[in-house]
Amino acid sequence: MLREPVMLERDIKKSIFLAQAAPVSTPTEAMEFIASVSDPDATHNCWAYLIGQTYRSDDAGEPGGTAGRPILQVIEGQGFDRTVVVVTRWFGGTKLGVGGLVRAYGGTAAECLRTAPRVPIVDMVDLTFTCGFSEHALLRARLESMDCQIVGEDFGAAGVGMHVALPTIREAEVRTRITDITRGQAVIRVVEEDVGQGVGD
């Protein structure tokens, strides 16, 4: 995914095309970014986003399939995820035709993303469990040394309820460590994230 928002401007046959891209985690974040960078005085603000299996694109008044879909194809083609791209056009008087529009919108988005700084996406999983008071300090230290983030702790009569987030690739190792330290007493549960997904074009 993108490390930070980026932008790129091109002049194509007297029309100005400005691509602006940003990392996003949810469709709501994507739509907020689109709203924040779209210029109401521009001729068109075309966009697309891809977040996991959720995607959406909009030609924003350009002929169907000439703007939003090419932008989406660029995001996919360059291996980006959790990314939104808006390409704004200020018409300069020369019509580009269907093929020209596809090349202009897709090409501007592609050039914007091609040199953009990236960061790897690390899939995470959240686990909850309860440990005894005597095990808490040791368990917390061990988990933090294994790239776990302590999301929350709940001190109750039966012990300490812990909620941790960790890279998915370390889940088996972390489960084993929790089981060992608690001598098999901890019941480990995965926190299910309820994420609605909609697909559009």
Rank of each mutant, 00 (worst) to 15 (best):
S57N: 09
E193Y: 08
F129S: 00
A172D: 09
I188W: 03
D39N: 13
A104H: 02
P167H: 01
V190I: 07
Q197F: 07
V191S: 12
P63I: 05
L139A: 11
A104G: 05
G61N: 13
Q20R: 11
L143A: 06
V174R: 00
A67P: 06
V164Q: 02
L18Y: 04
P23M: 10
R142T: 06
A186E: 00
M31C: 05
L127N: 04
C46M: 08
M1E: 01
P5F: 11
E62Y: 12
A172H: 10
V37K: 03
A110R: 03
H136R: 11
P70E: 00
L113V: 06
D39A: 10
D147K: 07
E9S: 15
E29A: 11
E4D: 14
E171D: 11
A116H: 06
G99V: 09
A141W: 13
R118I: 01
T168E: 09
K14S: 13
P70F: 03
E111P: 12
P117N: 10
L18D: 03
V191E: 14
M31E: 04
G107F: 03
E76I: 02
Q78G: 11
Q149M: 14
M124R: 01
E193W: 10
F133T: 13
P23K: 06
I71H: 00
W47M: 02
A22R: 01
V119M: 12
S15C: 09
A141I: 14
C148D: 05
E173G: 08
V85I: 09
E32N: 10
V87H: 04
V174E: 04
L96E: 05
V195A: 14
R142W: 09
G97C: 11
V199K: 09
V6L: 08
I71E: 02
G132E: 07
P167R: 04
E135W: 06
R175K: 15
G65W: 07
V98I: 10
G200L: 08
S134L: 04
L127S: 02
G97L: 10
T128F: 08
A48T: 05
N45S: 03
G132Y: 05
I71M: 02
L138E: 15
A141S: 15
C131P: 03
